[in-house]
Computed example of a mutant assay.
Amino acid sequence: MEALVMAGGKGTRMGGGEKPIMTLRGKPMLAYVLDALSGSRSIEKINVAVSPDVPRTAEFVLMDGRALTVMTPGSGFIEDMGYALSVLGLFEPVLVVAADLPLITPEVIDRVVDAYEKCGKEALSVRVEADIAPWTPDTVLNDTEKPTVPAGINVVHSAHMDRAQEEHVLVINDAKLAANVNYRKDLTYCEHLFAQEQEQG
């Protein structure tokens, strides 16, 4: 399966600057996402959606060498995702990941793709239960047994972007997937989880 990393947003909630290349432990957040995707057994090719708002991010992807960039207008997450899939000419299921998930792992990627292949639906959305989120989430969904928060990981069928797709919801209660970095304080939480892992490891 191919992957599309969404990295073209303005990052206004971060107070300015290009969010995908903001550093966590001296390493750009986008690099952690590329590590997870390139280490996954399920992903064959990585594409990164950028926009005119993130020229340094596009340069980083080029220098990193593990992914190809696709330029989008910077109109919004959904709009740019559809635009990128159209430009790439894909007519198949695609894993879509936000660039601000520095704690994502290859194991999670493989679990998501495996779940998608077994679910029999056109699309898949990864969520975490709202009560494990480390801070008050911006978006809470109430279409499952318990309130959930989008994790920023989805599979969409790129041949059907012109309509709503029948979706399977995969709930993974992992605090690392709740660490969607939207504000600078969220980086501090990620640092805390990294430190916890080192102590336990």
Results as ranks from 00 to 15, higher is better:
residue 130 A to V: 06
residue 54 V to Q: 07
residue 184 R to A: 12
residue 78 I to E: 13
residue 70 V to A: 11
residue 173 N to Q: 05
residue 32 Y to H: 14
residue 168 H to M: 11
residue 113 V to S: 04
residue 176 K to Q: 09
residue 72 T to M: 08
residue 78 I to T: 06
residue 98 A to R: 03
residue 193 L to W: 05
residue 60 F to D: 00
residue 54 V to R: 00
residue 46 I to P: 14
residue 133 A to S: 13
residue 69 T to Y: 06
residue 187 L to K: 03
residue 102 P to E: 02
residue 108 V to N: 05
residue 50 V to C: 09
residue 152 G to C: 08
residue 152 G to I: 03
residue 54 V to H: 00
residue 136 T to P: 06
residue 20 P to I: 06
residue 76 G to H: 10
residue 53 D to R: 05
residue 145 E to A: 14
residue 201 G to N: 14
residue 49 A to C: 13
residue 10 K to M: 11
residue 114 D to G: 03
residue 4 L to K: 09
residue 94 V to A: 11
residue 137 P to M: 04
residue 4 L to C: 10
residue 193 L to M: 14
residue 159 A to I: 01
residue 113 V to N: 06
residue 12 T to R: 12
residue 100 D to L: 09
residue 197 E to G: 01
residue 23 T to I: 06
residue 131 D to C: 09
residue 157 H to C: 06
residue 30 L to I: 14
residue 62 L to D: 05
residue 68 L to C: 12
residue 5 V to G: 08
residue 187 L to M: 15
residue 92 E to F: 08
residue 193 L to R: 11
residue 116 Y to A: 03
residue 40 S to L: 06
residue 135 W to Q: 03
residue 194 F to T: 07
residue 109 I to H: 02
residue 36 A to Y: 08
residue 136 T to V: 14
residue 53 D to L: 14
residue 67 A to D: 12
residue 98 A to L: 13
